[in-house]
Design a protein around this nucleic acid. Sequence first.
DNA 1: AATGAATGAGCGTTCATTCAT
DNA 2: CATGAATGAACGCTCATTCAT
Lengths: 202, 202, 202, 202
Amino acid sequence: MRTPTKLRPRTKPPGERRDELMNAALRLFLKQGVATTTIEQITSGAEVAKGTFYLYFSSKEDLLAALGDRFGKKLLEGIKAAIDKMPKNDWKGKLSAWARAAVTVYLDSIREHDVVFYGSRPAKREGLVDNIIVDHLFELLEAGIAVGAWTVEEPRVTAVFLFTGLHGAVDASQTNGKRINRTQLADIVEQLCLRSVGPTID
Amino acid sequence: MRTPTKLRPRTKPPGERRDELMNAALRLFLKQGVATTTIEQITSGAEVAKGTFYLYFSSKEDLLAALGDRFGKKLLEGIKAAIDKMPKNDWKGKLSAWARAAVTVYLDSIREHDVVFYGSRPAKREGLVDNIIVDHLFELLEAGIAVGAWTVEEPRVTAVFLFTGLHGAVDASQTNGKRINRTQLADIVEQLCLRSVGPTID
Amino acid sequence: MRTPTKLRPRTKPPGERRDELMNAALRLFLKQGVATTTIEQITSGAEVAKGTFYLYFSSKEDLLAALGDRFGKKLLEGIKAAIDKMPKNDWKGKLSAWARAAVTVYLDSIREHDVVFYGSRPAKREGLVDNIIVDHLFELLEAGIAVGAWTVEEPRVTAVFLFTGLHGAVDASQTNGKRINRTQLADIVEQLCLRSVGPTID
Amino acid sequence: MRTPTKLRPRTKPPGERRDELMNAALRLFLKQGVATTTIEQITSGAEVAKGTFYLYFSSKEDLLAALGDRFGKKLLEGIKAAIDKMPKNDWKGKLSAWARAAVTVYLDSIREHDVVFYGSRPAKREGLVDNIIVDHLFELLEAGIAVGAWTVEEPRVTAVFLFTGLHGAVDASQTNGKRINRTQLADIVEQLCLRSVGPTID
DNA sequence: AATGAATGAGCGTTCATTCAT
DNA sequence: CATGAATGAACGCTCATTCAT
């Protein structure tokens, strides 16, 4: 009931096609965000027909999950490799290695992470809801530094770190087994914040 | 020729209408996520006609921004109030107060935060891409605890805290003025992680 | 997020719009069949936008049902009117009136009936599966006429009548309360066929 | 480089393949209707690849026609066999035999007939447009019975029979050579209806 | 003869946005 | 101010059909 127009070698190793679709999708997601990227743009990017997409993925959601899988595995490998280089008993070194590797690995892929994870359109983040809270903590940290209450070398980064750490901990407490109650959670977060600013002078 | 169907005082103080729309929207966003909530559902929820929405907001995005504003201000007030109760020179106390207040305040509004911030549909979060990274760090922390390398009371929460803190710091470094380079960032994050696990035994 | 192109008075009495859509749909269904008529063609025919369709009908199926309703009512009125003209006690006359009215009424709307009922594309019917059966019965009737076994003035029409009548009776027996068994059904149909050919000579 | 997945004798006598496809198709058509059955489902059902379908049929329509042919021939055989058992000169017996055989034969295959003929999805028929007309005729017949105007043993079946017979006759008059005009058609149908209710009392 | 990956036109449906009333 | 009928671009998805292997 339809008539063809193009003729061109078509069949490819299936894994390859799938990968090409994922790559094209990621490229577009990073550029325009997930929601605003259409299936048609993805297939155009991979130079296949629209219908071909559905040969490899059942929906955009499905593709996103596949992207997430691939991404997670890649990250973990990077971090593990760094830790494995440390001597078996150097625990401080291991934690340092974890931190440095994680920073490195995420610096290269934070946008990919966010797209895969939150589906966030790019050029968000600024003007965040959170900024006023972070700013406020930043001011607190700076004030403390000024009077020698603690030693924090990069109060801006620290403020962000503490805020997002806290946010993550609170978030996780809601989703997980919920064993942790408000007070316990506050205690731990409090301790982490205090430790993070180094030795304090009361 | 046409007969009116509703009879009811229609004009309302504009601020009130706006608020009703925002409340209705938030309610729906929390229940079903942002993307799947239509303007019509919002106006139905606020008991006004579809067109009325555009009298108060220029788009869904605009509404989301307003929601974010309102939310941020509410949060900040809560945190500030807690800090202001502390003696002027008790810096440790101030930081503690910040941490505890922030935890409290977010526990009550984390879903609202996420909806306004990420537009996330509810009941996501589990099965996250990040989980495998957090799990890995958790195992590292536990191993260190087992051999007495450090003192961490709640390794699960701590792992989440450190991971999300790190993630936030990396993220911010991309968006901001970018003054911070890879090494500096790694240095600070490393230090924050080490401090967070308390005194370490080398 | 979109930009308008046309401006033109838009609002109409709702019943009218609905009717216009139904008329446009019927026109197209008759011309091209139900399956091959798209919603877009229908809305074009009614000179409204595609989306408007869904303001009045929830789907093509829904429209078809509405068309069926309207059609059924119209038919029944026509037949009832004809019968009501007959004297109260003239039963033969009433049955005659029914037959003639039904023929008349259907002659004007058989295509509409079929479209609404079967969704049939036009230019079917010929080359029907049934034809060989009808042909066979026709030959039987003619043969009987030739030897004076019965009196059938229009054997072709009669063959069609008996065949479709039989077919309908069998069909209904499957759907209905199923009280009628094979033998009973065969008995009645047999009798109807015999009566239909007039007095027979054994 | 590619490895075969199935190993199984592939080539089959062409007629057999064709039949298997037809059987698989019919099975699916009866279960789900024609329109909702895809070529892929048919080929899966026949355990061949999608492309193989087009080796035996040029389209779905073509397959449907083949199905119709096969069906018609099977039916006709059944009816002919019944008639041939009657004595050569027993015309009434022949017509009786036709009626009974046709009923029998259709009872076993009405669904197949409809699928092949109308492509109808199963479990339609109820709630038909026609029902109100049939109901109306049924009431007329019952009323006549009550006053002794005629003798009809099964008014429900008779109503259906007369209605569908009439419908078929009208339908055929539109498709055929059209030699028959409105009045002639009405005359014949009228006569058939009157004959069908047996001797009437004026 | 048989395969099945690839095609792509086409469809039904949604919904943010407009504007005549 | 408020309404809600109307708009129409856009989207996800289907599936009959083709053709290189």
